[in-house]
Every structure is written in C-alpha cells, then in structure tokens.
Design a protein around this nucleic acid. Structure first.
Lengths: 334, 334
DNA sequence: CTGTTAGCGCATTCAG
DNA sequence: CTGAATGCGCTAACAG
C-alpha cells in the first residue's frame, strides 16, 4: 500500500513494550489479558489503526485463516448462493473465504485447486465434485484438508442437501395433487445430485404404486437451454405428461419456456417443480414451486467438518430441504 | 499444508545452485534465461513440483499480485458476471482476483474494503460506488490504488459501460418500432447507471421530438420485485404505454410478470427492453430484448487503469454497449 | 550470470 | 508476565 504501513514495532514503541509483548496481546487466539501493558498495547494499536500484515503472519504461523472455495462458475446463481453462505459462515468464525472458478473441465478444476493452495489456504471447499472425480482422492492422498459441498464423491467429507429426500418431496407433491403421468428431467448422472434426486423421485412413485416410465425420464445438463430442449421432447408427445419435475430451477424455467412455445400455460396446462429455490423463481410470471436447499446449514456443517480434527464422525452430512409450493403446480385434470 | 512443502532451498540444492539463483530463474517477471543453470533449476522445480510460497513472496516483494474486488452481492448475476470477467482478465496478466461482498450498506462497504486491504491486495476494484459515496474519496486520500467498475462517483478512475449510450439505444429501438407512449423504469438515482441510462433515453426522445412524460417515468430499486410493482403502476393506467424500457434485466423480468398478472402478453400487447443481457433473459418464455454490457472490455480497461502509472489519461472510460433485439419488442399497434 | 548477505513483519521459542 | 533472539521462505542489494 502507498501509505507506509504501521507495524507491530510502531505499536510496541507507542505502548512502551517489546514487540513480542505486543504480538502476544494482539493475538486473537490466546486468552484475553487485562494487564496494564495489554491495555496500553490495545490502545496504541487502535490509535495507530494497526492492522496485522497477513503475509508475515501467515508465513510465521504456517496457517492463513483462509478457506479456498472452488466452484464451476459464480454466474450460476446456485453456486453464488453457496459461496455467499460459506463466506458468511467463515466470517462468523473469524476466517476468510476465497473463491476460484474453474468451469466444468476436470483439468481446470485441478489447476484452480493448485492456485488456491498456492495462496496457502488452510482447507479447500469443493462445489465441483463428480462422482468419479479424481481430485478428492488426490487431496486425500496428499493429506490436504478439504470438504465437498452440494455434491459428493461419496468418500471425502461432504456437506450437502439431502437430495434423495428433496427428490421425494418434489415427486410426492405432484402425486398428492393427483398427477400420474409425470415427467422427470434429471441432471447429469456424473453428479450425486442427479443420481439422488432421481432415486428420491422413484421412491415416491413406488410408494404410490407407480413406476417411472423410462420414456418420461430424461437426463441432461443443468442449463436453461437443456430444460427447453427436454421440455419440448416431453410436451410434444402424443400422450404428454401433466406434470414435470425438473432437477434444478434452470431446467424448470426452460420447461416453462418450452411450454409457452407449445401454447401451454404453466400452472394451468402443465405443473412444474424445480429445485434449489433460487430467489428469481418466486418472482417469475408463473412463480415456480421449488425445493429449497438450506445453503446456510450446508455451509456451517462444511466448516465444522473441515475444522474438526475428529475423523471418526459421519463424514457425509445431509441437510433436509423444504418444498415451497407456488403457482406452477396445480391439481391434475380429472 | 500437511505435506511438508518444497522450498526454494530444495530446488536450489537439487539444481546445484544457490538459492538466489533459483529465485531469479523462477522469477516470472524478469527476462527468461536459457543458461544451463536456468534449465537445471526449472527442471528441478518441475521435478519437485515446487510452488512459490505466496506469503513469503508477498512479504518480501511488498506486493501480492492480487486485486481485491468488492461487490454488493454475488447472487446478483450482473455482479457475478463482472467478477468473472475481472478474474479472467487478472489471470491473463498473471494476477489473482479476490472478492468480498458487502450488501448495500455503506458502512459494510468500508469494512469489507479494510478486510481486502488486510489481505495486502495491490489495488481495490469497487463495483459498489454511489454517486455520493465517501469511500472512493477516502481511498484517494490514503493513496490506495483503486478503480471503480460499472458505476462511478465521477471522480475516481472508473471503467464502465456507456450507460448514456445504452439508454439511448434502448429508447431509440422502441421509437424505431413506432412506439410513442413509452414507460421508463429507472434504477436508483444514487447510481450513475440510473442517472445516465435515463439521460440517454431522454436524448432519444428529444431527437424524435418527444419529451419524457413524468407520469410514465418511475424510479425504483434494481430487484425483480421492484419491476413487478413499477410494471403494475404503469400497466394499470387508463392510457397505458405500449412499451417499457426497464433499466436492468431484473426490472424487465418483473415487468413481464406484472404484464402476465394483468393478462397482457409481453412481446405482443407490450414491448419490453431490459439492460445488461444476463444469459438468462435470452431463454425466457418471451426472450427479452436487452442492452448488452461488455463486461470483458470493462474488466480489461479497469486493470489497465489501476496498473498504469500514468494518471494524466482520461480516468473515466466507457465501453459501448450493444442492443440485442429479441421477441419481447414488437412494432407498435397502429 | 552467480553467490553472499540482509532483511520483509511477525510468532514463537527460551531465559529471566 | 516480559523481552531478546531466532527464523518462516523469499527477494533484492551488493560484490564478484
């Protein structure tokens, strides 16, 4: 910085103590001393608006009080919400969260992780995991503290929403409304979210004495454009479904678009359920029924997992989602 | 990190040179040496997968190669896109971008900035500026390198879209389609974007021999819910406008929602133009005509401004936006 | 081009 | 509880 920074030395001098005393008093971890010297040091630090030099502190401590978060992209609102929740949770604990984006390429994922490690983060939080991802394994091998969020490779410590339960809630909601011909648009099979939300949906169908019609179950990406394409496929069928469960909100918006293109009105001719409940969907022309993912809980649990030394506890934690019913779902026609 | 890190010393030893030679060879800034020793050092570094310790390097260099970016929220797609663009531009130059969020409170803005400065960022990039913001002034006074993006206080170095031109494009587009009764939903007056987009729109009207009907010009926030409310106000009028220019995409989506609520079909009964062209709007049931903000250009220019030593050049740079016409705008009824 | 030397600012020994 | 001394890993003078 342009302004010559005030260092511990300045503070110590002003307080009339040694550097090491000043360092100890200002150490936020140790016990809070109330000795005369401590009071003077704090006053001096305040007066001079002293701010610890993180580079020097990290170098010496070997830890930075920083988590590195890796997401595919921040312009995906789900990922932005997840990061914001992690940032809040970190701040609460006096830590800092640092983010890097890596797109969907496994290679870039590994490289971005190295970038984070270069910044001496104390742990890595990955929102990118594929079920067959090599990166978590590599982190385990190298003994690098890490936790997976939202998605899991089913091995490394993970904090996520209970996607099976969420899938169940979504499908059950449609069944309760009397729907029997229900389409499913699922996310990529390489994500645990894709797999688990589908399992949950199938469980709900089984409970109702139904099975998933393979012709009505599509697997695709997580973008709006995928939702449009999949929606068209389902809705152009001779015997079209009366409801569709889309495994994320973008897909569901795409289905709304597809419906309009075919002259169908969402929440009238076709019921639609999304997943994640991003803020946008409550405000759409036809507000979307969606399964809300508890981002704050997931973030807090993730930090617990990655900071606790005890490995013996259940390493894969799932937070229960909630279904938020809105105008996009209505009773099935008789 | 758990694995004992390999240091310069290890590399130097393996290459049979001194630490300082190794340091020099691996210095990415200086000229690229091809001497035998240099080759050996690079081989050794590669072999041992050496990674520079940023804390130590920053401490010594006094610079971190890091920009601190401050945004209100990342779950606002516009801000996420802006940050992603800055991140890309920084990476291109071998730098790193670090983000902090601060909501809309000026107090939190100042505090978040301090958090970034604590991390020894080389410069601060603010996407938060209000026209009467005190923070840029405080940064100028303290001699802290900074640049404002997207919004400007009209004093500090800034890189933004040409909002006046964008407002002109949007309004001109509607006029060219034959609309004469045009509503304007504008962003907060404390943002330069709000002010400038409105001026541009007014210029287009003047050129067409019209003036802005004050009753059709609303000023509000930038959220979807604001768009819904403002849209209702405009569309419930006895003599309702045939077109609306909303100063950002969220407002425009809100207007679409308001239209539907009143039984009007966007792109048919009412034409709507948004601003920023976030990816979502191209995929809506009625794809939205929008003014595209050139985020990558803005990011590159911002980094130029903040890294160049020359203060003499124009410190407020504006990148031209483009209008992307889509189905939400149609010819005015006769 | 090379190596030697001296710190960057801080946290932590170790003596007192 | 305190202060003096040491070095985290790296870079920048300096001298060869």
């Amino acid at each position: 910085m342009s302004v010559p920074a005030v260092t511990l030395k300045d503070v110590a001098q002003a307080a009339g103590v040694s550097i090491s005393t000043a360092s100890r008093v200002l150490d936020e971890r140790g016990s809070f001393s109330t000795s005369a010297a401590a009071v003077r040091v704090r006053a001096a630090a305040d007066e001079l608006s002293y701010r610890r030099n993180t580079a020097a502190s990290s170098l010496r401590r070997g830890a930075t009080g920083t988590f590195g978060v890796l997401v595919p992209r921040l312009s995906d609102t789900v990922m932005a919400l997840m990061f914001e929740a992690i940032e809040r949770a970190a701040r609460t604990r006096g830590h800092f969260a640092l983010v890097a984006t890596c797109g969907n390429e496994p290679d870039d994922e590994a490289q971005a992780t190295e970038t984070l490690l270069d910044r001496n983060v104390d742990a890595v939080i990955l929102a990118t995991a594929r079920v067959d991802d090599r990166l978590p394994e590599s982190l385990r091998r190298r003994g690098i503290p890490h936790v997976l969020v939202l998605r899991t490779d089913r091995v490394s410590p993970s904090s996520l929403g209970d996607d099976e339960a969420g899938g169940y809630l979504a499908m059950r909601h449609l069944l309760d409304l009397g729907h029997r011909d229900i389409g499913l648009i699922n996310g990529p099979t390489f994500t645990s979210t894709g797999q688990d939300r589908r399992s949950g949906a199938e469980r709900a169908l089984r409970e109702a004495g139904l099975t998933l019609d393979p012709e009505l179950a599509l697997t695709t990406g997580y973008g709006i454009e995928h939702g449009v394409a999949a929606g068209r496929l389902l809705l152009e069928r001779a015997h079209r479904p009366t409801a569709i469960f889309a495994a994320n909100d973008h897909l569901a918006i795409g289905v709304q678009t597809a419906a309009r293109l075919l002259g169908l009105v969402p929440g009238q001719d076709i019921s639609i359920v999304g997943y994640n409940d991003i803020p946008l969907v409550a405000q759409l022309p036809v507000p979307l029924t969606s399964v809300r993912t508890p981002f704050d809980t997931i973030a807090a649990t993730a930090l617990d997992l990655v900071t606790s030394k005890s490995v013996e506890r259940e390493p894969i934690r799932r937070a229960l989602p909630t279904l938020i019913p809105r105008a996009s779902t209505v009773r099935a026609p008789l």
